[in-house]
Design a protein around this nucleic acid. Sequence first.
DNA 1: CGTATTTGACCAGCGC
DNA 2: GCGCTGGTCAAATACG
Length: 135
Amino acid sequence: MVAWGEVSDCWIGKRSNGGDDHNHIGVSAAIKMKKMKGRRKVREPRFCFKTMSDIDVLDDGYKWRKYGQKVVKNTQHPRSYYRCTQDSCRVKKRVERLAEDPRMVITTYEGRHAHSPSNELEESQTHSELANFFW
DNA sequence: CGTATTTGACCAGCGC
DNA sequence: GCGCTGGTCAAATACG
């Protein structure tokens, strides 16, 4: 259904190239999260997937609830913040639209799912072997 | 009625 | 020392 296979590129954690615009993004986020709850100081793996989709809400098999929207200075478009509405799934998803490519969105997954992606999407299964390495 | 969604305000670390 | 950005949460609202 969704074009999950259109992943142009993916990287883990923050990039230190120092050439892109979105580099310090999440810097304060990690710190904030640490001090905010006082726990969970562990650095959760951040998976950024650049997906070429017209829709920002890519159903990966989970349900997401928008908990905030903020516009970034480097971006002319607002960023959307989603949270997993699952039972024991506190995974967070960050969706940012590219200014140069409005049809392209960067989906950043933070944290790991507490349950299996028992989705009905068979295509995910195909990528499972690949994604399994990261997930 | 319940849930999801929306907007605004607040807070805190980092930079200058 | 002050300002700025980014992120989260809260409350209110809308829709199913």
